[in-house]
Design a protein around this nucleic acid. Structure first.
Lengths: 217, 217
DNA sequence: CCGTTAAAATAACAGTGTAAATTTACGCTG
DNA sequence: CAGCGTAAATTTACACTGTTATTTTAACGG
């Protein structure tokens, strides 16, 4: 134990603790993991973590922020692929789904409804905003390319919430008896994009009689 | 304290405790409510609830089952309204949204992702199944009436998950900066129904040039 | 080598879920 | 009515939790 803690040492300890905490959270659920258990996994005393984190809530917030960042990085990587707007958009959608299926515990933590006021953790706010932001770019591109019509911000929230809804229903165990989640997702996207295409102005293709019948309010 | 507990007395005690527990859960979150706190609200000793419930988890499961039943009753009432299939379907959708906004804590409890194995509580399974079931009837009716095309079971899951996604994002506090949740919901339904209508076979109305373009898949 | 001082470890507190032991009080029988 | 059996309620107790206060440890400067 050095006399004074190098800033690097602090960062290292925090990182290692967060990694351990995330693993334990995934294994036994957040409520089932105690500070003492985390400390034990770190090989330190029960209260040493309090030198690096204010309390358990801050640990949880940091784990969630890390998950959001990992998620955002994954999505951004998918969007960075080269290809047509449609291909890139499909890649983003696939990356979203794959992340949720590959790291269900991380996804659960990220979007848990029981978290009261995340706003106290700037890093969590930043990571969450980054994750949200990187889901609108591909929609904006689709609109710019004239493949769908509508307000990109609104459309991206529509696509996002539809996808999110299927993911969380599955992660909550509520899609055990109905259609396969993948089928629901595919059909949702098919219908949404068909619907959004219907809003396009008349175009080159011959049989474009689809006038704006969207007057259902 | 009677010598033996009438079955009615047991049911009464359970009901009163569940009501108190639900109120406390809503006020302070599930994790913030202790058995002792519930017992205090009941005016009994700390361990008396254990005569009526196996443990805290069973209390939570019962509260969740009650919420599902209340939800299902609300939806069924909306569907029981007289009117056209479209009107009845719209009423169901509105009732769904209104319930989630009126009882966000109940909704949170119902669809919380952190619940591991609900299957141990038959009443909860039954109530959950009932709630899910009453969301397909109005879709089935729409399909029967020829207003939309597709597999009713699949379509109902599409509509459900889209609605659910918006609700849980709002309840998780993730829709503070974007479009209003109501707008996302309206646009989602507009696009989905437009998309689903596109799958209809050619019909009476004059400008029905929409030949079966639904040849995808 | 010794004192200073930051870091770690220990001890302690209030509160948790819950099981075991104990007390209470009702209904029945002698 | 006395008193017993017994179900219901309470008290006690235990292992655990998050967290704070106190004490111990150990690296550095003189």
């Amino acid at each position: 134990m050095p006399k004074v803690l190098d800033e690097e040492d602090v960062a290292d300890f925090r990182e290692r603790l967060l990694a351990a905490a995330e693993r334990l959270f995934a294994e036994q659920g957040v409520a089932g993991v105690s500070m003492r258990r985390i400390a034990q996994a770190m090989g330190c005393s029960a209260t040493t973590p309090y030198r690096y984190f204010a309390d358990k809530e801050e640990i949880l917030a940091s784990v969630r922020a890390a998950a959001f960042d990992r998620f955002a990085t994954t999505i951004e990587a998918a969007f960075a692929r080269r290809g047509s707007p449609v291909e890139r958009s499909a890649a983003v959608g696939r990356a979203y789904w794959d992340f949720a299926m590959r790291e269900p515990d991380a996804y659960r933590l990220m979007f848990d409804m029981a978290q009261p006021d995340d706003d106290r953790y700037p890093d969590l706010v930043r990571a969450g905003a980054r994750a949200r932001g990187c889901m609108t770019a591909h929609i904006r591109e689709l609109v710019s390319a004239g493949r769908i019509a509508g307000d990109p911000d609104l459309l991206s929230h529509v696509i996002w919430s539809a996808t999110h809804g299927i993911v969380v229903l599955k992660l909550a165990g509520r899609l055990k008896h109905g259609p396969a989640p993948e089928d629901i997702l595919r059909e949702s996207m098919r219908l949404l994009f068909n619907g959004a295409r219907a809003g396009l102005p008349p175009r080159a293709p011959a049989q474009a009689s689809a006038e704006a019948t969207g007057s259902q309010t």
